[in-house]
């Protein structure tokens, strides 16, 4: 037994130096040099100011913007730090709802979201992504169906023809990788920036 003590201690120290310091720090240096935009969180600037990350969803409630999916993230309650309050798209505390399929809370939440959405576009069935929480609580995307569903509301709020907004959505669909991997999706922040560019 005793003969293993020195190798065990020296080995874990050597591995810490190689895999715990040299490896991540070298990767950081290379990443900062070769892919500085991605390595720093794919941050988007508008007029020089950082307004978010293209990869991290953010909350939109104004009728003039496309809305993201419901988000289950929380933050500590400022009044009572032992409790938490709902803060959608809190990007320092990612979380799903973790509600199971037979949960009353899940079904009543979906019902409430669906009722709200049905008022703005009663003619169309509601795409499921618009009423369900994403896994991360930070999903930057909605489905193309979820974006098209919101077109009438936005067109009305901005006084634009439906067709203009619809074209904008279709132009912002990210297709599957190589036509095979993943699902077509629309980045909400990019779409809203494009919307502001057309109709400030």
């Amino acid at each position: 037994m005793l003969q293993h003590i020195r190798p065990a201690i020296v080995m874990i120290i050597a591995m810490t130096v190689i895999t715990g310091l040299a490896y991540p720090l070298a990767m950081t240096a290379v990443a900062q040099l070769v892919f500085p935009y991605q390595a720093n969180g794919s941050l988007i600037r508008v007029k020089g100011k950082v307004i978010g990350s293209v990869l991290i969803g953010q909350e939109f409630t104004s009728p003039r913007y496309f809305h993201p999916r419901p988000s289950a993230t929380t933050e500590p309650d400022p009044k009572d730090p032992t409790k938490t309050i709902s803060v959608p798209y809190a990007a320092d505390n990612s979380s799903g709802s973790n509600l199971g399929p037979t949960s009353k809370a899940l079904v009543s939440g979906v019902q409430a979201e669906a009722a709200k959405l049905a008022r703005e576009n009663p003619a169309t069935a509601i795409p499921v992504d618009l009423v369900t929480n994403s896994g991360s609580g930070l999903d930057p995307d909605i489905t193309p169906a979820g974006a098209l569903f919101q077109v009438p509301r936005i067109a009305k709020a901005r006084g634009l023809p439906d067709e203009t907004v619809r074209r904008l959505v279709l132009a912002h669909i990210d297709p599957r990788f190589l036509g095979i991997l993943g699902e077509p999706h629309v980045n909400v922040l990019e779409l809203n920036l494009a919307l502001d560019a057309v109709n400030p």
Binding site: A125, I126, V128, D129, V131, S134, D141, T143, P144, P184
Partner: peptide, 21 residues
């Protein structure tokens, strides 16, 4: 609740609770 969970060219459908688009 008039929620559309069927797949189409515009959405994958299915059980999207806890999933990423």
């Amino acid at each position: 609740f008039h929620v559309d969970q069927a797949p189409s060219a515009m959405q994958p459908g299915g059980n999207m609770e806890g999933k990423e688009v």
